[in-house]
Design a protein around this nucleic acid. Structure first.
Lengths: 343, 343
DNA sequence: TTGTAAGCGTTATCAC
DNA sequence: GTGATAACGCTTACAA
C-alpha cells in the first residue's frame, strides 16, 4: 500500500468514507463509539488526510494568509506573532507566505486564494502600486499593513494601517534640528523608491525646509543597490563613503535602525564617536536600537498595535461590518544616547 | 462566472481541456499556434490554475520544502537565501514553512509531503528526537541542517550538516581560559534543553575541566522561560540578575550573539564596561556581533557553506546518489574587541 | 446514525 | 496534434 487514503481507512473500519470524514472533521452526526474506533484506526495506520484534496473540495476554509515582502526585516517578527495570536482567537488559521523581492504579491495572493480558499489576506511590507484591474481579481478582502503608500490610492478600495512615515520622519528631522543641528546627513532609499523610503526622505526634506536649512544634496546618501537594502552592512558602507567624502555634517539620520547601527560602526572605525562627534538617529524601534551602545534615538512604531488593528479590520471586512478602513498610528520618538544637542 | 476554470478556457478557445493543460504546462504535443492562442485567452481572462487540483493530480512536482523552527533567528536569514538560490539552480522550487515552537515538525512534514508532492525536505533549527517509527512515515529524503543532535542517532537514517556545537563551544571557553579568565559565567539554555543549548553548555564544562578550573554552578545562568529564548532581551534580563547577585566573574560567555548583546547592555547599565570590567563572548557570528560596539568575540558559523552543502546532500539523496551523509563544518573563532586578557 | 455518489479542477492515459 | 475520460483524495448532498 503506497499512500493510505480515506478509502483505506473506511475499508479497514468497515464503514463508509463519509463516516470517516465525519470523524476527522468533528461532525456531529456520528456516534461517539464509531468515531473513537475510526480515530483509533487512523492513528494506528498513521493516516494523514491530503490537504490538496480537502482544499479542492472545500468551498470555504477558515484561513487567512499573511504575505510578507522582505521576511528578513526583524521589524516584522513582532507583528507576526500578533497576527497568529489574533487569528487563533477568531478560530481561524493563519498561513505565512513570503514574497520575493521581485515577485508580484498580487499574483501570489490570487493563486493562494484559490489554492487555500482563503478568507482574507494581509499584505505586509513593501510598497503597493497595482492596477485596479489586477486588484479586482482578488475576490476576498485584504488589508495593507505597514506599507508605504506614496501615490494617491482609492480609499474605498484599499484598507490599510500603518504609521505616517512622512510625518514621523519629519518629526525625527525636526528633533535633530531642534538640537541645533544644521548639517544633517540622511541615509535614504534610492531615488526611484516609491515606498516608505520616499516618504521618509520627503519628511526629512520638509523639516529642513521648515527650519530654514538649506538643502545640501551631498548629504543625501542612498543605500547601495548591491547590498541588502536596509541592512547594517548597507548603512556601514554608505557611511564610510560619506565620512571619506569629507562633506561636513554633525548629525546622521538613517531611515532604519539597522542602517543606523551600520552607520555607528563606520563612525567608530573612523576614530570618531557617537554622539560626541556625530549624532545618529534611526527609525523603526527595533530591539537593537535599545540594546546598542550607545542606545539609538529612533522612531518607535507600535508594531503590536498595528498588527492587532490589521487583523481587526480584516475580520470586519470578512464579516462585512465595514467597507474599507484606514488607520494611522502615531509612532513615538525615543530620544536616546546616540543624539545630543550641538554645542 | 464565479471562478474561472480550465474548462471555461477550453470552451472559450473551442478546444479540449487537455489542450489547454498542455499549453499551460509547456507540453510538447501541441502546435505553437493553438498554444499561443490559448495563452492569449488565458491572459485576457486572468485565468489562474488551481494549485490544489494540480497537486492532487500530479504524481510528482519538482519541489522541496524547508521547515524552520524559530524563524525569528536572524542566523537563518543568510541560509534561506542560499537555499532558494541553490534550489533554483536545480530547476526546483522551494517552499518555506515555519514550524511553531510547540508543533511537531515531522507532522508538518508528513502533511506537506502529501499536499505538495514534495521531493525532499530540509529541517532547519530546533532539535531532533523522533522515533524511527514516525520518521518512517516520511517517504522522501530529508536533511537536518544546523540542528543540535544530542542523542545518538542512526547515522544510516539521518543525514545532517552543522557545526560541532560541543567542540566549538569548547573552543570559545578554551579561548577565554587562555586569556587568563578563571571565573567565566555562561548564559545557557534551560537544563532541560536537548539541543544546541545542551551541547554548547557541555563544551563549556569540558573546557573548564581541562583547564583545571573548578566549576561554579552560580556562574551558570539559564535563559528565562517567560522571555523569547536566545533574544537580546533574555540576555539582558539574565545578566542583570547575575550582576545583582554579587557573584564574581571576569568573563561572560553567552551561547548566542543576541544574548551577548543583551548582556553587554546590562553591563553598561551597571556602570561597567566591556571588555575592561568583563569580557563578553557570543556564538553564531551574526552581523550584529561585528557591528556592535564593542565588536563581539564570537564563533562564526559558516552559514552559506552549511546551506549549500545541505542542498547538495538533499539532491544527492533525491537522485539516490547517496544513502546518507554527514558533514560537520568547522566554525571560526572571531576574536574581537569584547574580550581581553585578564590583567 | 450511516452510506452512496456526485463533484472540486486538474493531469495522465489513451484513442483518434 | 487533439480530445474524451478516468483518476487524484476528499467533502457533502441526499438517500437509506
Amino acid at each position: 500500500m503506497d499512500t493510505i487514503t480515506i478509502k483505506d481507512i473506511a475499508n479497514l473500519c468497515g464503514v463508509g468514507v463519509t463516516t470517516v470524514s465525519r470523524a476527522i472533521n468533528n461532525h456531529p452526526d456520528i456516534s461517539e463509539d464509531t468515531k473513537q474506533m475510526i480515530l483509533q484506526v487512523i492513528k494506528e495506520n498513521h493516516y494523514v488526510p491530503n490537504n490538496s484534496a480537502r482544499n479542492l473540495k472545500r468551498s470555504a476554509s477558515k484561513t487567512i494568509a499573511v504575505l510578507i515582502k522582505g521576511i528578513t526585516n526583524p521589524f516584522f517578527n513582532r507583528m507576526l506573532q500578533v497576527f497568529e495570536q489574533e487569528t487563533q482567537k477568531k478560530k481561524y488559521s493563519c498561513i505565512l507566505q513570503r514574497v520575493d523581492e521581485n515577485q508580484d504579491e498580487i499574483d501570489v495572493a490570487i493563486e493562494l486564494e484559490k489554492e487555500k480558499r482563503l478568507k482574507g489576506i494581509v499584505f505586509l511590507g513593501g510598497y503597493f502600486s497595482h492596477s485596479k484591474e489586477k486588484l479586482d481579481q482578488l475576490t476576498i478582502p485584504f488589508v495593507l499593513s505597514t506599507i508605504g503608500l506614496t501615490q494617491e490610492v482609492d480609499q474605498d478600495v484599499y484598507s490599510w494601517v500603518s504609521v505616517d512615515d512622512f510625518q514621523e520622519s519629519y518629526k525625527m528631522t525636526d528633533y535633530l534640528c531642534g538640537l541645533g543641528h544644521k548639517k544633517i546627513a540622511i541615509i535614504s532609499a534610492g531615488m526611484d523608491d516609491e515606498s516608505i523610503g520616499k516618504l521618509r526622505y520627503e519628511g526629512y526634506r520638509k523639516a529642513l525646509e521648515h527650519h530654514g536649512i538649506k538643502f545640501n544634496p551631498n548629504l543625501v546618501r542612498c543605500m547601495k543597490d548591491d547590498i541588502e537594502s536596509y541592512s547594517m552592512e548597507n548603512g556601514y558602507a554608505v557611511t564610510r563613503e560619506l565620512l571619506q567624502s569629507g562633506e561636513e555634517f554633525t548629525a546622521l539620520y538613517a531611515i532604519s535602525d539597522s542602517l543606523a547601527v551600520g552607520a555607528c560602526k563606520a563612525i567608530f572605525e573612523a576614530g570618531k564617536s557617537v554622539p560626541e562627534d556625530y549624532s545618529v538617529a534611526g527609525f523603526d524601534g527595533l530591539d537593537i536600537s535599545f540594546y546598542y551602545n550607545p542606545s539609538i534615538t529612533t522612531i518607535r512604531q507600535p508594531a503590536e498595535k498595528i498588527a492587532k488593528e490589521t487583523i481587526r479590520i480584516l475580520f470586519d471586512l470578512i464579516h462585512k461590518k465595514t467597507a474599507s478602513e484606514h488607520r494611522i498610528f502615531a509612532a513615538q520618538l525615543m530620544a536616546r544616547d546616540s543624539t545630543k544637542p550641538l554645542k
